[in-house]
Design a protein around this nucleic acid. Structure first.
Length: 318
DNA sequence: AAGTCACTCAACCGCAGGACG
DNA sequence: GCGTCCTGCGGTTGAGTGACT
C-alpha cells in the first residue's frame, strides 16, 4: 500500500513558480502567517501541492533570506561545520543568517566540494586525499595496480574523485559511517595522523580559489600535498584512521581533544561553531575519558571480524 | 550559427519524527 | 499503542544558461 500521496499529483502544477503564484503566497502569508501548508494552496488560490508552497516560501520568499553570493567567511564556516557534523544542512544553515539548507547544500555540492578536491582534500573525511589513498591501499592488502599510478598535478581531481568514490563504495551505509565517525576521538588514531588543518588561524586561506594557497601553506597548515607521500608512514590499517582526525580546529600548543557528543548534541555543536569562529581556547581542557576505550573496543571488534572473515579483504574489486 | 557540454540552482521526492486524536 | 496529519530534512532531478567546439 505505502503512504498515500500528500496531494493529487495529477492535478497540481509543478515546476518553476510564476510571479503571480509568488504574489499569492506572499499575500496569504502576510495576512494569515505561515502554518498548515496543506490548506494554503486552496485558501490562497494556488494549484500547487502544499509541500511545494512551503518549500517555495522557506527557500525563496521568506523576507529574511539573503539572495547574494556566499562570502568567504560563510564558505569557511560551512566547511568547518561540515567537517564537524557532516551533511546536516539545516543545522549548518542555522549558523548562517539568511541562508537556507537548500542554499548551503547547493553551494557545497557545486562549489565548496570542488574547491576542497582541487586542494587535495577529501570532502568527505576532510583529510588530504593522498592520505586517504595511502590508507586505502592498506585496506586492499598490499595495494592495487589501479592505485599505484603516480599522481600528477593534473590528476588531483581524478585522484580526489577516486578517494571519494572508494569511500562511498567501501561503506555500505555512508551516513552511518559518517555518524559513527563523528563519535570518535582522535586519541586512538593520533599515531597515524598528519597535522590537522587550522582554518581559523588563517582566514580565507582555504578559499582563495587557487591551489597556490595550499602549496604556500605555512607551518600551521601543513597539509600533505596531493602528489606527496605522507610524512608519517602508515604501517597498519585501522578503521579509526579513516575517521575525522579532529572534529574541532586544534588549538596550537594545546592538547585539544574532541568530544563524543558532536553528532547528537546540537548544543555542543553550537558551542563548537562559536568556538571555531572566535578561535578561542576555551575547550582545550575538555577531555572525554571514555573515548579511547570505545575506539579500542571498535578496533578489537574489527580485528575479530577480520580473523573470522579473512575473505572480506579479498572481496574488494576496484 | 548550431550543437554539445558543464554548471547552477530551484524544485521535487521519499522518509522520519513529532503532535494530536 | 495506533493511525493520521503535518512538518522538516537530505538526496536527487531537471530546466535554464553560459561556455566551448
Amino acid at each position: 500500500m505505502g503512504r498515500p500521496p500528500c496531494c493529487d499529483k495529477s492535478n497540481v502544477k509543478k515546476g518553476l513558480w510564476t510571479e503571480e503564484e509568488d504574489a499569492k503566497i506572499l499575500a496569504y502569508v502576510a495576512i494569515h502567517g505561515v502554518g498548515n501548508w496543506s490548506l494554503i494552496p486552496k485558501k490562497a488560490g494556488l494549484n500547487r501541492c502544499g509541500k511545494s508552497c512551503r518549500l517555495r516560501w522557506t527557500n525563496y520568499l521568506r523576507p529574511d533570506l539573503k539572495h547574494d553570493s556566499f562570502s568567504p567567511q560563510e564558505e569557511e564556516l560551512i566547511i568547518e561545520c561540515h567537517k564537524i557534523i557532516g551533511s546536516r544542512w539545516s543545522s549548518i544553515a542555522r549558523k548562517l543568517p539568511g541562508r537556507t539548507d537548500n542554499d548551503v547544500k547547493n553551494h557545497w555540492n557545486t562549489k565548496l566540494k570542488k574547491k576542497l578536491m582541487k586542494m587535495g582534500i577529501d570532502p568527505v573525511t576532510h583529510k588530504p586525499v593522498s592520505q586517504v589513498l595511502s590508507e586505502f591501499r592498506n585496506i586492499s592488502g598490499h595495494g592495487n595496480a589501479s592505485f599505484k599510478t603516480e599522481p600528477s598535478n593534473n590528476s588531483i581531481l581524478t585522484q580526489s574523485n577516486s578517494a571519494w568514490e572508494m569511500m562511498r563504495n567501501t561503506t555500505t551505509n555512508h551516513e552511518s559511517y559518517y555518524n559513527s565517525s563523528m563519535m570518535f576521538t582522535n586519541s586512538a588514531s593520533s599515531e597515524f595522523q598528519t597535522t590537522p588543518f587550522h582554518f581559523s588561524s588563517h582566514p580565507n586561506h582555504l578559499l582563495s580559489g587557487t591551489t597556490s594557497s595550499c602549496s604556500s601553506s605555512s607551518s600551521s597548515a601543513s597539509i600533505t600535498q596531493p602528489n606527496q607521500v605522507p610524512q608519517t608512514p602508515v604501517t597498519n590499517f585501522y578503521w579509526s584512521d579513516f575517521l575525522l582526525s579532529d572534529p574541532v580546529p586544534q588549538v596550537v600548543g594545546s592538547s585539544a581533544t574532541s568530544d563524543l557528543t558532536y553528532a547528537n548534541n546540537e548544543h555542543h555543536f553550537n558551542n563548537q561553531a562559536e568556538y571555531t569562529s572566535q578561535n578561542i581556547d576555551s575547550k582545550a581542557s575538555k577531555t572525554c575519558h571514555s573515548a579511547s576505550s570505545f575506539v579500542d573496543e571498535i578496533l578489537d571488534k574489527d580485528q575479530e571480524m577480520l580473523s573470522q572473515f579473512p575473505q572480506l579483504l579479498n572481496d574488494f574489486d576496484y
